[in-house]
Design a protein around this nucleic acid. Structure first.
Lengths: 270, 270
DNA sequence: GCAAAAGTGTTCTTCGTACACCCATGA
DNA sequence: TCATGGGTGTACGAAGAACACTTTTGC
């Protein structure tokens, strides 16, 4: 038997943190799991987490464990509940403080650093260790609630993104479908998105040489007509059009976000 | 030195629960505090709470402590966060799982059972022990958020109540003022309120003997005119009017509430 | 060229908000 | 009788929801 040298007058539970990390691959919401290498639940999948050190608070502990076990170095995690049922861990009385986090797509690749960490689509999550199935449901629930009030969705996407990508993300989280036009409108009117100027070298070459007359678009029903229109217009007002190649990209306005945080008035009704 | 007989291989923090109990006296929101009888913070006020036993989960522990320290026997409390800063308790590393609760006015009196428990109006709360000042702010914040999505306000009122009472409660919690007509409208259209039939013996005597013609109310500008009107009408359709004596009372429709819980679609925008 | 996805405006309805007067009660 | 508080309806504006067609792209 190991030496037990930390003694107390009254029994103390152990305290762990667990972190439910959500990621997004452009289609589906995913969660990051690690395969347990030791008993109990050896070989089972579970959320990254572990015992809290005595010199760190719960948030610090959760971030540390996350980095240790998955390589993910995040800044923002959100506590969503504690799990304290008496027999939730067969070893001893363990109370877990649970967080959820959102990781950008680019960070998802970084997750591979950790040998046993892997992303799972939400509908492919295996049976998890401990009460982590329940924990996942609770995390999803909280995420769904929070997304109405905090523009957290952006943490799941890269530096910039298209509106349909953002819409798919919201649809994946909330499990509903939105009308595209209404989604555009609502997102834009929050003022939290900046339209990204597409760099010159990503534009197709001919956009520097041709233009279309806006007023003629209505009549231009077929490709042939469109081509004709292009050549018939010598005036270059192409900036409006060049931006429209292959999906307008947006970036997330951090300044506006902080303003929302401060005023606590972000709200996205769906 | 006391014997320390509970030993672990690794250090364990102590775990406590704390409960922020809100009450309402018809005017102001109050919180229930207990005066600490022992160090640390002896003589200071703090929220009821204490160390978690090993055979109970956090909710059970919080309810037990609440009953022990204040005499309050509640059923529903809501976890709103954990407090885990390293030095938040001078004795040892203590992590607190915090709940808030709502107590009916009638229960408020029951609080006197416990010698050192006392209700404080929110703006008269003294400096609290530990990090309980911070805890109170967090609890308030959570209550304000939650009240939009759960009809929890009703837990603070008695069996039945008038609309102005309910309005005052919401105003006290949210710290704003509502237009009376709009408040009525919104509350009634949630469908969560049932109008309470006033028992016969609470009606003024003459309501069993007189009636008014609805259509004549417009012309009845003064008391004299009203009295005349009463005597001029022999037809008894008094149910409409009898209910209007001294404040229409409403009760909270539990069935509708459960429905909201299930469908998760209660929402009260202000 | 064909199918799939991106981009765009308008109308209708719903809901929130602002607002004023009468009646009942109790001091 | 007077002051306070309870009870009621309407009109306006903002925002959500429903809806179709054109352009672009990638296969």
């Amino acid at each position: 038997m190991e030496e037990k040298k930390f003694c107390y007058k009254y029994p103390h539970p152990a305290v762990t943190t667990d972190c439910v990390v959500f990621g997004f691959d452009g289609r589906e919401l995913k969660v990051l799991l690690i395969e347990r290498g030791v008993d109990p639940y050896k070989g089972c999948w579970a959320f990254p987490g572990g015992f809290l050190n005595m010199d760190e608070n719960a948030t610090q502990g959760a971030l540390r464990e996350l980095a240790e076990e998955t390589g993910l170095k995040l800044e923002h995690i959100k506590e969503f509940g504690t799990f304290s049922d008496v027999n939730r861990d067969p070893r001893e009385r363990v109370i877990s403080i649970a967080f959820y986090a959102l990781a950008k797509k680019s960070d998802v690749k970084g997750g591979d650093d950790a040998a046993k960490a892997q992303w799972f689509a939400l509908n492919e999550v295996p049976r998890l260790a401990f009460d982590h199935d329940y924990m996942l449901r609770k995390a999803m629930q909280k995420l769904k609630e929070d997304i109405h009030f905090e523009p957290i969705g952006f943490d799941l996407l890269g530096e910039n993104f298209t509106m349909p990508e953002l819409q798919r993300l919201y649809e994946a989280i909330l499990g509903v479908h939105f009308d595209r036009r209404n989604f555009y409108k609502k997102m834009l009117q929050t003022g939290i998105l900046d339209e990204v100027e597409k760099p010159e070298d990503e534009r197709p070459a001919f956009f520097g040489e041709h233009c279309e007359m806006r007023s003629m678009d209505i009549g231009a029903l077929f490709g042939g007509a469109t081509k004709e229109t292009r050549h018939s217009c010598p005036t270059p007002h192409l900036d409006d059009d060049s931006r429209r190649k292959k999906g307008t990209r947006f970036s997330f306005n951090k300044k506006r976000y902080d303003q929302f945080k401060e005023d606590n008035n972000f709200r996205l009704e769906f």
